[in-house]
Design a protein around this nucleic acid. Structure first.
Lengths: 196, 196
DNA sequence: CACCAATATAGGATAAAACATATATAAGGC
DNA sequence: GCCTTATATATGTTTTATCCTATATTGGTG
């Protein structure tokens, strides 16, 4: 469902082929809030065309395979605008990493800390990539930021905020784990102190 | 795949029926990081049994329908521990709400602000529910928090941190939208100042 | 000249998730 | 007496997403 509207959104700004949508839109512009593989994009376009939300035209190219260029219809615009203006229920939270943490007591302190640290590295890499994109976005639009550019920037900020929050939590949790390990390391001593 | 390991994790702590796993574990204990419907739970248990990661025994009950109680096998424990100790790739980011923001320039300032505000309300409700759970968790374990209880608490903290980050971002974005609306409201005046 | 990357679309197979329905018993409220 | 809730499991269907493979052309690299 969501991909339908994302594609309609991109087409609202101008005609595009499936290839354009996959490489330029989904993989580049929308990669920080949505992903879809090539098959999904083409099949979604087929579905949107059957439902008359988009139309297509063959563009004959020389030197390259022909393109099928899609255009949004009036019905497509209506559907997009309706969806955009609707407040949808929050999708359920789903984080496989938190399953690992929840059952983390099965592991040793070291093994668990290792998993957290690796996750932190991955999140940090993601955050760095987002920062780069935010910087280049700022360079492109300069001071004359139009409304669309501002919205795009806001989505980057949301993704960055989420990554930062995750990283901060990871740091806190790693601290907790370390003090836990230190505590259990001095267990015997603590026990003797209790007895005294 | 993740549900497989979550179920193995719950079974590692003791035998459970499909009904237990759905109502006690998934819907209550794990609801802040995973969801699954009843059909998914029963079918996953079938699959885990076929793969010999769990075994089952019929328990005859009087007054209630009979139960099928599952027990984790040695192979199941190995599989669980392997998975827990492995650092998995981050799942792709996917947030339908950010699709709405990305194409939000299609909407009026008011319509967009309304969508953000409603989302804020939903997030705030989720955060409140998480806070309640964290409080009752703290009450239950008291000062004698064992390792498992600490991990459970950490997952609640992660979920709360994510909600707080989302709410902060929503507040910032709503501020931005409001100043944008104020700016465009005084557009004519600004234009005259530019001319002067 | 073989191989690979880029351009461009499409379909088969499978996995994961969501939605709906069926079946059966007992307790409690209206 | 009827309806709802709780207990308990199972299957059918559809949607969404992922993975893999097929097809076809051009240009560049080794």
């Amino acid at each position: 469902m969501s991909l339908d509207h994302a594609i309609l959104g991109f087409l609202a700004d101008g005609d595009l082929s499936g290839y354009d949508i996959k490489t330029r839109c989904v993989d580049r512009d929308a990669s920080h809030f949505w992903t879809a593989d090539q098959a999904q994009v083409y099949r979604t376009l087929d579905r949107l065309e059957s439902a008359r939300y988009v139309t297509s035209k063959q563009k004959i190219q020389t030197g390259k395979p022909n393109r099928k260029v899609y255009r949004i219809t009036r019905a497509g615009r209506v559907r997009l605008d309706d969806w955009l203006a609707t407040s949808h229920a929050l999708p359920p939270y789903r984080d496989p990493f938190l399953i690992q943490v929840y059952f983390g007591s099965e592991l040793s302190d070291e093994a668990l800390a290792d998993v957290l640290e690796r996750t932190r590295t991955q999140r940090q890499m993601r955050l760095s990539a987002l920062r780069e994109r935010a910087t280049s976005h700022a360079m492109e639009v300069g001071s004359g930021a139009d409304r669309a550019a501002l919205m795009h920037r806001m989505t980057l900020d949301a993704a960055m905020a989420a990554e930062r929050a995750a990283i901060d939590w990871l740091d806190d949790s790693l601290d907790t784990l370390r003090s836990l390990a230190a505590e259990s390391g001095s267990q015997r001593q603590l026990f003797r102190e209790d007895q005294a």
